[in-house]
Design a protein around this nucleic acid. Structure first.
Length: 718
RNA sequence: GCCCGCUUAGCUCAGUCGGUAGAGCAUCGGAUUCUUAAUCCGCAGGUCCUAGGUUCGAGUCCUAGAGCGGGUACCA
């Protein structure tokens, strides 16, 4: 079909037309042209307006020398009629010969109505604007495959009007929200997305690397603390439409890249906040929908105010019969939940803190029941490190969440502005982190300093834009209101797996020293791993258990340091790379046969559930034993492990010939010289070091990086 | 993470018990000056997601993998 269209493209060029024009002067958008045609007194083109319109050809019906075309632009659709009598045989014939569904075409003509009364433009001439080479989706069903609709959203937008409407509503929603806030004295600001600390929420961040500053950065998970600093600076009311990123599980109600609106207003508390919020959202619902009831998943949601305000304690008491105010410890709460026969699905219930248990209980028994907008207020203090403590009850905070249809739409509080209390809360967070809680806030001295300079009382909130828009448009999946959600690439050519078969092929006639079982253990290469699948603590235990020789221990620790430096340089997962360095020779003390070296490590790490790419990287560094059977360096990590493990040998040897034997006195230049001298430390495999190229580092830069890393983080032989 | 499901023509979808892979729309050729998912006649169009396996024979059965979706867990 594409070939046919390419032929047409050539043909129309040969006929002197331009397949891709640069502009077209429109007098009317299609919806307006159609309206003009509908409103005119006579059906007759003679009495119609002379107009020019443009759009995509969506449908065509041919009656010999009479052609009906449905044209679509951003405003809608309008029919265009071409007839030989008005336009001439040749122009109609050329249109027939050259134009396909999907092409963009401009028409001049007069507004009119057909004999059947359809408002139309009676064309007197047409202009080619853009040739399409690929066909549109089926005209009646449109594009329905969800994956295709996300990968090729433009086709979804062209062929499914309801999709177009949904995104139009999202756009209007944000515009109207801005207008509402602007009119009430809020200033819109922009705060950093790229930052050095995780602040403002409890979530795992995306980690990246700043090359010029050579430092770890994270993408923001919330703009909260920046906005409060704006208020401290005298911007009494601020807001931001903030793209935020959270590196957490995906679900219909969670995106990793999403839009949150936050605002803060000085001198308000959370009660003021609720009043304001009710007015704001009701206004948006009225303006955007023109009605206050909507249907989602067969349920009716009624936005009519006032919305109930229920304290979390009362809510849970109502729904489960448990009054957590009477339960002082986590164990008491756990017991009460068990006594009521309530089953919490969450993992780690046995270790959960009191606050977390209450939160889980709420999510289980109460939140799903909340269909109409409801303010859930007065949360336990330990889940709200940035919220103001309640004056009467120090175990809870002045906070609310707005829940609609079981979704948390808004999270708000009277902000904590007491620097001493804030510091204590941060310290609790740090303690929780030390106790193993992964999602805690780090102590933020910059923010505390701002607070110590004085912050006015204030209240504000964060609202998930996608969630609200999904609600208003009756969608149950946030991807339906995200134009281009993240999808895995389909193009297999750029995946590392494509390179692996080549390595396999090259070795078919070589010795088979490895069993299939072993081969299976060795994993598959990948440029990076999100998580190695082993904790640092466990890696250290394995290290202590298997590696006894002091020099080997030193060598592995140094390799770990170098791997860490490489990861920072390359912007990859530093922790995983460090662990690979630490574990790469795990079996060296225990395995005597060189060809079995790494296989035992692979077995051990396989049992520990280590990421296959990591096992592959370690296995690939024993080129003496395993290269014959096909395990060789393919990915970035593979090359990095080899280069790191070899370079520490060279550096150690170079240190030994220094008078002080101290790495601090080692010069990069001398390491470079030693490298070039094959007689120096002859058993250090230079070709392994050169694998740094495969990790994207030039030799000289890599040597410097390794030396500096070991100087900054010396490893003693103990 | 774990569990379940889906993947067939450009699009929307059938495909029986394991026995020559189908329809509609779109495309291509033909008829048609008032259609509204036009109609009528005809042609063409396939990596049945990928790789293995079982079988005389696999879209169909088995194994592994990929993409997507759903559920569940995690998630201010």
């Amino acid at each position: 079909m594409r070939a046919v269209r390419l032929q047409k493209l050539e043909a129309l060029k040969a006929a002197g037309m331009r397949p891709y024009d640069d502009r077209y002067e429109r007098t009317h958008v299609l919806a307006d042209a159609r309206q003009v045609a509908a409103d005119q007194e006579s059906d007759d083109p003679e009495s119609g307006r002379l107009v020019s319109v443009a759009g995509r050809v969506m449908m065509r019906r041919v009656f010999g020398k009479l052609v009906f075309v449905h044209l679509q632009d951003g405003s809608g659709r309008c029919q265009v009629v071409l007839d030989a009598g008005t336009m001439g045989d040749e122009a109609v014939q050329q249109f027939q010969d050259f134009v396909d569904l999907g092409d963009h075409v401009g028409f001049e003509g007069r507004t009119a109505r057909t004999k059947k009364g359809e408002p139309s433009v009676w064309a007197s001439g047409w202009t080619f604007l853009s040739k399409s080479l690929l066909p549109l989706p089926e005209k009646w069903s449109g594009l329905s495959d969800l994956e295709a609709r996300q990968r090729e959203r433009y086709l979804d937008l062209v062929s499914n009007p309801e999709t177009r409407e949904r995104f139009r509503l999202r756009s209007r929603f944000v515009k109207e929200l801005r207008r509402y806030l602007d009119e009430r004295g809020f200033e819109e600001v922009d705060t950093p997305i790229l930052q050095t600390k995780v602040t403002g929420a409890l979530a795992k961040p995306f980690v990246t690397h700043h090359n010029a500053m050579d430092m770890r950065c994270v993408l923001r998970i919330a703009p909260e603390t920046w906005l409060k600093q704006c208020v401290a600076g005298g911007m009494d009311r601020v807001y931001e439409v903030a793209r935020c990123f959270r590196n957490e599980g995906m679900s219909p109600a969670h995106l990793q890249d999403f839009t949150m609106v936050e605002w803060y207003a000085a001198y308000w508390n959370y009660q003021d906040n609720m009043d304001f919020t009710e007015g704001l959202l009701l206004h948006l619902v009225d303006v955007l929908l023109g009605k206050r009831e909507i249907e989602v998943e067969g349920r009716t949601i009624d936005f009519d105010t006032p919305w109930p305000r229920i304290a979390m304690r009362d809510l849970i008491l109502r729904d489960s019969g448990i009054d957590y105010a009477e339960l002082e410890t986590a164990d008491d709460v756990r017991q009460a939940i068990r006594d009521k026969g309530i089953q919490l699905e969450a993992e780690g219930v046995d270790q959960m803190s009191r606050g977390n248990l209450i939160d889980q209980l709420y999510k289980k028994v109460s939140r799903p029941q909340l269909v109409n907008p409801t303010f859930v207020t007065d949360h336990p203090i330990d889940l709200s490190p940035l919220a103001r403590m309640n004056d009467q009850d120090p175990t809870r905070v002045d906070r609310y969440q707005l829940v609609v249809n079981g979704w948390e739409i808004i999270n708000a509080y009277s902000e904590l502005v007491d620097p001493l209390d804030q510091r204590a809360r941060f310290e609790q967070q740090v303690a929780a982190r030390d106790a193993g809680d992964e999602e805690t806030l780090p102590l933020d001295e910059d923010y505390l300093r701002c607070m110590e300079h004085g912050m006015p009382p204030m209240s504000g909130w964060g609202m998930g834009v996608e969630r609200v828009v999904a609600l208003l448009t009756g969608q149950d999946n946030l991807r339906e209101v995200t134009l281009f959600p993240l999808l895995k690439p389909l193009d297999k050519s750029d995946e590392p797996a494509a390179a692996a078969p080549a390595a396999k092929e090259a070795t078919t006639d070589e010795g088979e020293t490895m069993s299939d079982e072993h081969r299976a253990l060795l994993g598959s290469p990948a440029d990076d791993v999100d998580a190695l699948g082993i904790t640092p603590e466990r890696a250290r235990e394995l290290f202590d258990e298997h590696v006894k020789t002091p020099s080997l221990r030193r060598q592995m620790e140094q390799a770990s340091v170098v791997m860490g430096a490489m990861a920072r340089k390359l912007g990859t997962n530093e922790e995983a790379w460090r662990l690979l360095g630490l574990l790469h020779n795990l079996d060296f003390d225990e395995v005597k046969e060189p060809e079995r070296h790494c296989l035992v490590t692979a077995e051990i790490l396989g049992r520990e559930g280590v990421h296959p790419a990591g096992i592959h990287a370690i296995a690939a560094h024993n080129d003496k034993g395993l290269v014959a059977t096909g395990i060789r360096c393919v990915s970035v990590i593979d090359h990095a492990v080899s280069a790191a493990e070899a370079v520490v040998g060279l550096i150690h040897a170079a240190c030994q010939v220094l008078p002080s034997k101290d790495v601090q006195d080692l010069k990069v230049k001398s390491v470079r010289k030693r490298f070039k001298n094959p007689k120096f430390a002859a058993n250090v495999e230079r070709d392994l070091i050169e694998r740094c190229a495969g990790a994207g580092l030039e030799l000289e830069a890599f040597l410097a990086l390794a030396v500096e890393a070991l100087q900054q983080e010396p490893v003693s032989e103990a």
